[in-house]
Design a protein around this nucleic acid. Structure first.
Lengths: 244, 244
DNA sequence: AGTAACAACTTGTTTAAACAATATTGGAAA
DNA sequence: TTTCCAATATTGTTTAAACAAGTTGTTACT
């Protein structure tokens, strides 16, 4: 449950928009009205509205008002701009997640791996291969590298559930941000074997590589997620900023 | 050129970070110092810093400071969270763009197209197929649908240059936001023919579909961009928000 | 009727101030 | 020396106020 006022207002407005309480393409109540409704200052409602803008739920128009442009979208596996674990996104979409640990080892980064992952050479790492199932279908093959010094005592049991849950709630690590890249790559034999794919059908997978940082500014994770192409679906809301 | 103070501060800090004037992993000057440097209020510097956070340039730590976590990245064709035209991203990366108009027609949306694009049935549309070259290589095949009533008098000549430039600078339309989806799809004969691809090599393309809105809240464009998989590269910075 | 000016309403930017929450540091006390 | 606490420094949240800028509707005048 949120503890800040603007977060409360943001969520309330978001729910109301999703519940169609404001007509599509119509204006939301003006700031002054929201100030009275939520008994807060103008800055606070503006902060909430700002989040709705980046979510693509509304657009603001100086001199006119705030227009609802939200359209319900088909359920999607991934959203951009936020870090969400496999479990979280599955549950959000009412699907059943399962994770199988294919490999759990400890390795030391050599020069080649260091260049590839960004970890300093000599770093002690956990290297995992995990297969994520959604409603019984194997959809994502993950290659995870975790810094041992940051992810103490990781076990295959934890890896089969939620590593982030362990990091956040047991080790009390604060995960801050993640730099991600999406590309399309040729399928490998491992992909083919585990994700039930056939080269004659699709010979590519969607690949998301991410470098994730904690609140100490340390990159503690490098992950390559290989997605079955027919189930890969990424969403984004982009904002045009006036030419400079 | 920016006209607001926070935008100036944001750009100045961004440039300094890119120019390595603040050491990687070290703290930026505290807010109070920046207030003096830029002769502004605390809110204004905080607004600038907030933008750097969403850019993934810095991370803020309550009680400690603001840490520089910027790492230069290889030049990339596309960034997430902002709308950028093909020309703009090419020029930003010092590459030479060229656009060839393969098809330029006018059509009326029937039920099927309406469902596909989101335009109301009966809408008068321009339908274009355009091929984007970068440094001589055909990389992106675009299927563009523009609302005729919003993109008056579009011509093949304009389409060969920049449609957005025409919309913004001639028609004075304000482009606001764009909802985008990324997927991987099977290659088509058209893809194969124009993008110089071979089914035996890659049999997929990366597909970005976008619905773009102007400041009147009207969806005036629906575009499907089909990218050569070996050159497709999308970047993102995601922020973890505390569990609710 | 048309238009020009004005008033009212809306969002955008900036400043100022107070208090909360977290982290670090230094000194006092054990 | 070690431990604990208080002071200090830093970012986070919220309020209040003023002015700027854009839109809309009304009024008054020609």
């Amino acid at each position: 449950m949120p503890k800040t006022k603007y977060e409360l207002i943001y969520r309330d407005l978001k729910e109301k928009i999703e519940a169609d309480e404001f007509p599509y393409q119509e204006l939301l109540p003006p700031e002054n009205t929201l100030i009275q409704i939520y008994d807060c200052s103008r800055n606070t409602v503006r902060r909430a509205i700002g989040k709705l803008v980046t979510d693509g739920y509304v657009q603001t128009m100086q001199g006119k008002g705030v227009r609802n442009i939200y359209r319900p979208v088909e359920q999607t596996a991934f959203t951009i701009g936020e870090i969400e674990t496999f479990r979280e996104s599955a549950l959000r979409n009412g699907q059943t997640p399962r994770t199988k640990v294919l490999l759990f080892t400890e390795i030391t980064a050599d020069a080649s791996l260091s260049k590839h992952t960004g970890f300093p050479a000599g770093s002690e790492l956990y290297y995992l291969q995990r297969l994520h199932y959604l409603d019984g279908k194997p959809l994502i093959l993950n290659h995870n590298y975790f810094l041992k010094s940051a992810a103490h005592d990781l076990t295959p049991e934890i890896a089969a559930n939620s590593i982030y849950d362990y990091l956040e709630n047991t080790l009390h690590m604060t995960i801050v941000n993640s730099k991600r890249t999406m590309t399309v790559e040729k399928i490998t034999e491992i992909d083919e074997k585990y994700m039930d794919l056939n080269v004659d059908d699709y010979n590519c997978v969607a690949v998301v590589t991410s470098s994730t940082y904690n609140s100490d500014g340390i990159m503690f994770e490098y992950t390559q997620s290989r997605h079955r192409p027919d189930y890969f679906h990424f969403q984004d809301n982009a904002i045009r900023r006036p030419a400079t």
